[in-house]
Design a protein around this nucleic acid. Structure first.
Ligand SMILES: [Mn+2]
Ligand SMILES: [Mn+2]
Ligand SMILES: [Zn+2]
Ligand SMILES: [Zn+2]
Lengths: 148, 148
DNA sequence: ATGCAAAAAGCAACATAGTTGCAAAATATT
DNA sequence: AATATTTTGCAACTATGTTGCTTTTTGCAT
């Protein structure tokens, strides 16, 4: 029964990820983490609430996402339409500090948001007197899946 | 009375900016435009509501900002904390189409957001299959006024 | 200046988003 | 299995944003 075995693997992965982050393994955390792992893009709070919210309270979704951000499991993505989106961090974000130096891409066609992990944020030459601590780049256009 | 004369200049400027944008010159529009002109940074909706809102209805502030964005008088700035900020556009934005290709800077110290009009958004080399229509860059750090 | 048509403001009611305190339930630890 | 600790769900609340409609203001022609 290979499918069940695969599912088991994901659940194991989820449990160890939570334990590594000092979070107890609860049903809502497993469910929400599952949502992130089973698809490539980012998720808006609304998406998560729809997919998981029939089972869980709204407040639980808020608190779960908040905990995941604090623990470096997911990071937020600023978008022009001002709806926060969340995506999984790379493993080295664990420990409370984020080091996501990749850019983000929002597709006009399908609406998905992707982390382009291989595209490093460019150096920005600022005017005299300004010091940069962090650079956020969001590119909007048409994604790989929607071109044609 | 030089001060009054200066004020008169600003009011004239405001009125002509509104007329050029096919907007009738109303008290709330003048007031809100004044807020933008009398300070260098960007304003969050909340700021505007606090400063102008004692006099005007909340809904009027929403509709005024919306009209200004549509007419190319102000543009929105996406920020990490997901509170929309607005800043004045350059003159060539009028006509409904925005061409703001500058980056934005959010100061960790004073909290202000600035348009760095002279810093052009960098070229981003995307993976195969992705097409960029627009690039948004927000730099966070310490601003000119707060360094030291 | 006055009157009129069009636009905008104000109001009320509503919808959505996010927060907080607390009791009940689930989880981790012994 | 018993207990201490976390997390959940619920309720109530605040904040943010939207819509329809009436009154007021504005722009314009007389
Ligand atoms: Mn990312
Ligand atoms: Mn700007
Ligand atoms: Zn797409
Ligand atoms: Zn500053």
């Amino acid at each position: 029964m290979p499918h069940k075995h695969h599912t088991q693997d994901i659940e194991t992965r989820i449990a160890s990820l939570l334990k590594r982050s000092d979070l107890s393994v609860t049903e809502s955390r497993r469910k929400i983490l599952h949502l992130f792992l089973e698809q490539p893009g980012a998720l808006a709070h609304g998406d998560i609430e729809k997919k998981a919210g029939e089972k869980f309270d709204r407040v639980t979704v808020y608190r779960t996402l908040q905990a995941f951000v604090e623990k470096g499991i997911i990071h937020t993505i600023p978008t022009a339409d001002n709806s926060i989106r969340y995506a999984l961090c790379k493993d080295d974000c664990a420990g409370g500090h984020h080091h996501d130096h990749h850019i983000h891409f929002v597709c006009d066609s399908c609406g998905n948001t992707y982390c382009l992990d291989d595209v490093v944020t460019p150096e920005i030459k600022l005017p005299k007197g300004y010091t940069a601590a962090h650079v956020e780049v969001v590119v909007e256009g048409v994604c790989k899946n929607c071109k044609g």
